[in-house]
Amino acid sequence: MNPDTLKYTEEHEWIINVDGTYIIGITEYAVDALGEITFVELPEVGKFLERSEDIAIVESVKAANDIYAPICGTVFAVNDTLEMEPDLINRDCYGKGWIVKMKDVNEEEYADLMDARSYRGYLKTV
């Protein structure tokens, strides 16, 4: 993915709509803060999530971060490869290190998220 085209949350998640499927991952900033990622706990496929509900846990040696649903919707697919290779997120957080795909989302919530420029501005404040 090209980071410039993604949408962002204040919890350092990225999300993008690809033909009605919303792909979610964590940003480079989040990855740097976590360090070497050792484990990812993924949600059940088919689960409906409210906005801000826990969607996954990303664990490193020094932290375990909850990932929250950036918008409400249904879990459509999870990145099973992360179970064996959690460090994919370290290596390619905007690509092979994606975490969850959602469908049937609230598109208004999606539209309200930060774009790349606002996120970069936000990063300067944290």
Partner: peptide
Amino acid sequence: TLQAREQHIRREK
């Protein structure tokens, strides 16, 4: 190992 689950990191969680 697996210390990230523990109180000194996860606190109330």
